[in-house]
Nucleic acid binder design. Structure first.
Lengths: 118, 118
DNA sequence: CTCTTTATCAACCATTTGGTTGTCAACGCC
DNA sequence: GGCGTTGACAACCAAATGGTTGATAAAGAG
């Protein structure tokens, strides 16, 4: 189900270290060791982070001898922007309808008692 | 810092119940009780969810007698789409550069020994 | 003033999360 | 075959999360 995928992706990006990993992978593929180097944590910890990103579909790994190069799967971004834009648009439409109502009230404000309090 | 805000927003939306609350608020403001009604959980649980959304800046609450109507703050979406689009674009540019390199290799493939292995 | 409605706070519980260390597998190199 | 490198898996731990129940506050209704 798409809900499950959305939850995984959002949860994956809720961690600053994982967001940073995604940011760096956007600039090019990298091995676990290379990714782990900048942070003051163990390689195992980063390996776990990458696993989370992988299960969210944000990262895929191939094989090169002992190395496991990580690759960003940018299409997953569409899942998020799709969700976000849907509700942003809905909220915006509602906002515009509210605007229309206020404008209508404004047009008739000298005919009835209800002014638009500032 | 923006990182902290991003973490909160992504974490808030990682929960399906909270995403659903946001979706419903996109259609109009609602009270805690109204929001809690569809799910099989206590009002207190939903109150906690709303608090998370509020601390992420996604929801604001006003006052109407005992009621506390919840309102979606859709501008926060921009924070997410801003982050996402930045790295999506970067990954896309890299992809196009790779394409250019492959094309160049293709142009010269009968002049040198390096073929593009499939 | 008392009762009901609406929602928060506090304490508690089970599960998940992000980190650690230790062990082990896979692979290239000597 | 033995060694160094790269990375995953398991067990463990502290902290955070999502839920519960019980008590409490705030405000209108009787």
């Amino acid at each position: 189900m798409a809900e499950e995928r959305l939850s995984r992706v959002f949860a994956a990006l809720a961690d600053p270290t994982r967001r940073d990993i995604v940011a760096r992978l956007a600039g090019g593929d990298a091995t676990v060791g290379q990714l782990a180097e900048p942070y003051g944590v163990s390689v195992q910890a980063i390996s776990k982070h990458i696993k989370v990103l992988e299960e969210a579909g944000l990262v895929s790994r191939s094989r090169d001898a002992q190395r496991r190069p990580c690759h960003l799967e940018a299409e997953v971004f569409d899942l998020m922007t799709g969700w976000i834009e849907r509700y942003r648009r809905r909220a915006e439409e509602r906002f515009q309808r509210l605007d229309a109502v206020l404008a209508a009230m404004d047009d008739t404000q000298d005919n009835d008692q209800q002014g638009v309090a500032s």
